[in-house]
Amino acid sequence: MSERINSAWSPSSREKERAQARKRISRKQAVVAAVSSIIVIGSLLTIVVTSPGWAVVKKTFFDINYGREVFPTVISGLWINLQLTFIGGACIGVIALGLALMRTTKSPALTPFRFLATAYVDIFRGAPLILIILLVGFGVPALRLHGISSNVIFLGTVAVVLTYSAYVAEVIRSGILSIHPSQRAAARSLGLTSGQTMRYVVLPQAIRRVVPPLLNDFVSLLKDTGLVSILGVTDAVRAAQINASRTFNYTPYVVAAILFLLITIPMTRYTDRAIRQRTNAQNAEGAI
């Protein structure tokens, strides 16, 4: 047991000197940081603003009035991206978990599934997302299968889900493999079957461990939903494109980019914090 902190403590004169010295050092560091930032950012801005084409760029990319005019159409497009992200994200979670479990199973009855899951991950992780979107978006309707929707939003979502399930499956699988074998040995020695060991001991720990990288993938997913615009889905990217090609003013692209950033930057910050907390927790856990 540690001693209770003595409330009557007052810092010694030596400690007061040290505190002042620390304050001086940190003040000096703040000045250096500010000066360096002003110089670097200032020169970058100067280079851009004094460039020969800046007047034209300013008019075609940063036209505030036009930006305001297209804002409603772009933001209603962004709503499609968000829907796609959340509905797709839910499907991806379920499929990826299934794939990860299939790939880590040792049960002989599931051997063909293990093989199929591996092939699936290889294919969809290895092919560019944009190709998968084009193949699904134009290939599936060409099959003229009865009962399969040829709605481009649906097909675009399917393509994104197919690809991201492969990415996320690998993240979950790496989490499963990162759980120390001694945990499995302990569970099995209590008589739990391999399935129960996975469900009650391995998976809960594995998922907790991979939440930060999964949040990263979630940010990427939101951005990549912009790719379904090539199928003609009127998402934020497509809405910006329509407006831009109508007037040859590219401000709508900047508006779309800023809207994406307004969502993704807070998400990335949150993810970074989650990763840091996770790392700290793991360090505290020591050998586990």
Partner: peptide
């Protein structure tokens, strides 16, 4: 699994489930 139900095992490194 049935055999292990009749055997208790304790390990050097405890191996409690941390979650």
């Amino acid at each position: 699994d049935e055999v292990r139900r009749k055997l208790g095992m304790v390990f050097q490194s405890f191996n409690l489930f941390p979650h």
